[in-house]
Design a protein around this nucleic acid. Structure first.
Lengths: 154, 154
DNA sequence: TCCAATGGTGAGACTCGATCTCAGAAGGAG
DNA sequence: CTCCTTCTGAGATCGAGTCTCACCATTGGA
């Protein structure tokens, strides 16, 4: 168990470190979920993780996975996104404000910073009298690799 | 029934017209749902409409309401938005591309046009190689009226 | 070393929004 | 009116997410 634990900590390094820093216990199940999240490439649903867990860490309960995801989300280690179809998904990400560009081809997501959005929001507030307190921008499209694969011109 | 039908058509005029134009039947239940949507001020959940319907048009099934909302959404007469809490809601809107600013005080929503967002998205695409095909911007905050009510300085 | 307090866990029941199914009821072209 | 198609209501069903509860693990104090 200790070897597996060490391997997980290595794979999910920053997740584990952030958990520790926030004063949460580094339990086996949490490390396992952190590992599954770290191994995921792109967005995933809670159900995806449940399936992964059943395969790679049988014995972990569904509730524990939801709890771990909630915890990660509360620490901004993971973010909830809403797919165009209305499904909820999660994306592992850095704990700073940014947005996600989600590739509809491969499902990977790309962190995107502000690029002037704040200015646009300020403009909206100024013109409409609306006091913006929160916002969410989700971008959908094709990443460079998927464009190439589908023969788009560069 | 015909009088009620005429009244509904008047209240939910553009919804009904759009349905007709798209070649869908103007049935009683659909007109009723269209009327409920038109009477709503701000965002609402499917459950809200179900409650409204039970009161004002008993006899309309739950499934019918969901089907009508799906239909309206497919015609861009109504848009699905995802509230910060993760709930799904709908907003009646004009069938042109725009975004919603949702007031967390009163729940009303304000249609917002582009205000430079397209430029931001283009910039994102240019810098990252991502080919943006779709996006969703949701803005949360306080409308002018709610700010005044809560004593914010102008 | 023991003990109690705190925090975490698995299992399974439960909630509730949303979808599906199916028999029957309307719309509407002719 | 007749017939075909589309639509509808009722209720079953699904499924994501939450809750409860008894039990386990870790920690820090004595």
């Amino acid at each position: 168990m200790t070897a597996e634990r060490r391997a997980t900590i290595q794979a999910a390094g920053h997740l584990v470190e952030a958990l520790d820093r926030a004063g949460h216990r580094l339990t086996g199940p949490r490390l396992a979920v952190a590992g599954l999240v770290a191994d995921r490439d792109g967005h995933f649903t809670a159900a995806d993780l449940v399936v992964d867990a059943r395969r790679r860490h049988p014995g972990i309960g569904r509730a524990t996975i939801f709890r771990a995801l909630d915890l990660f989300a509360s620490l901004d280690l993971v973010e909830r996104v809403d797919l165009p179809g209305g499904d909820h998904a999660y994306v592992a990400c850095e704990p700073v404000h940014h947005h996600h560009a989600i590739c509809t081809g491969c499902g990977r997501s790309l962190d995107v910073d502000d690029f002037g959005l704040t200015r646009v929001l300020n403009e909206i507030g100024r013109r409409s009298g609306f006091r913006v307190t929160d916002h969410r921008l989700e971008i959908f499209g094709l990443c460079a690799a998927c464009q190439a694969a589908q023969g788009y011109p560069a």
